[in-house]
Simulated assay, not measured.
Amino acid sequence: MTTVHDAIDEFISHIAVERGLAANTVAAYRRDLKGYEEFLTDRGIHRIEEITDVEISEFARARGTTSARSSVVRAIVTVRNLHGFAVTEEMATTNPAKDIALPKVRQRLPKPLTVDEVARLLAAPDTTEVVGLRDVALLELLYSTGARVSEICALDVDDATTALASPDAGLKLSGKGDKERIVPLGSYARAAVDAYLVRARPSLAPLAKQADHALLLNERGRRLSRQSAWASMQQAAAKAGLSTEVSPHSLRHSFATHLLSGGADLRAVQELLGHSSVATTQI
């Protein structure tokens, strides 16, 4: 009989290698399943075939006492996928999670910024400083493309220089599941990225022990993380005096809202955002 630990290891390998899920998605699966394994171990359950719907219901209930509903839903779906995989690979005969009900999650979207608020945010960083030039490039890229912050942080210098090489060239982004798409790069974003590459990045790059091909660098010359990007946005929002909640996702939501308000086609916006379903864009 297959142990829970071995089943989880094989499942993680499957989604990472065979299905090619994004690193952040795989990491989320791994965190949820680590908690699941610890929960089962505490109850003396070590083999995948021993698990019943009772244990999974108890796991969901315990998770609900410390986590948001959205986190509970994600954990249950992760567990359900694990057991489905176990059945497919003949580690178990049934999926005890298939009939576990998912708690309803109220969908909450960030309030879009107004055009004036976006303009104030973009103008907030001090462009006489290296970090300010970088932050303007970050903010302009987020708003100009509607990209996820992880997609912007993942950009390399070559991605930017290719887009800047021609006025008609777009920016290639790698989204969820490593799906690639090309998005237009507006003149303000082009100017901000060009200024950063010429006046700021050459000062940041030598600070790293090893050369980093990342477009956006932190103060140590390494790739800018999503957390650091979020912190930079908070500083810019505070400097701009914005009372509205500001995050990378709120800027992405503002991008879509402003396009649709201006008469853009819904399906065109869907493609720009990299949504797999137009229903997601409509929300």
Rank of each mutant, 00 (worst) to 15 (best):
S67W: 07
T52A: 08
N95M: 05
V136Y: 01
D265P: 10
G221I: 09
K209D: 07
L173H: 02
Q234K: 15
A279E: 13
D126M: 03
T128P: 03
R267W: 09
V54M: 10
V105K: 07
A119V: 03
V183Y: 01
K179I: 11
S243D: 14
S228C: 04
E151Y: 10
R148L: 10
D168S: 10
H249W: 10
T162W: 02
V115T: 08
G170R: 00
R148N: 11
E151P: 05
Q107A: 14
L171R: 00
N95P: 02
K104Q: 11
A27K: 15
L164I: 06
H5V: 13
K104P: 04
V72P: 03
D194G: 03
P184G: 11
E10V: 12
R31A: 07
E37V: 10
A192F: 00
Q234D: 06
T94K: 13
V79K: 06
I8G: 00
A240M: 05
E151Q: 05
R74K: 10
R223S: 06
R134K: 09
L260H: 03
A119P: 01
P167T: 02
S13Q: 05
D126H: 05
H249R: 10
E50G: 08
I51R: 04
S203C: 09
R106D: 08
R106T: 12
S57N: 14
T114F: 04
G263R: 03
T127N: 01
R222Y: 05
E38S: 15
E38I: 13
E49K: 15
K172Y: 09
I48A: 01
K239R: 15
H14L: 03
A137D: 10
A22I: 02
S276V: 13
E140S: 09
V87M: 07
P167A: 04
L138I: 12
L142Y: 06
K34H: 14
L133S: 01
K176P: 05
A16M: 00
G64D: 02
V198G: 03
E140G: 08
G20A: 08
K172G: 03
G146W: 00
T88L: 12
R181P: 11
L185R: 02
G262N: 08
Y36P: 00
S276C: 09
A154K: 02
T2M: 08
H83Q: 09
R61D: 14
V149P: 04
T65D: 13
S254P: 02
V136F: 00
K209W: 12
R226G: 08
A7R: 00
W230E: 03
I8K: 01
R30A: 14
Y29N: 08
A101L: 11
F59Y: 15
H258V: 07
P103T: 04
D9F: 08
T3R: 02
V130R: 00
K98F: 11
D178V: 07
S277Q: 12
G263E: 02
E180H: 03
A189I: 09
P110C: 15
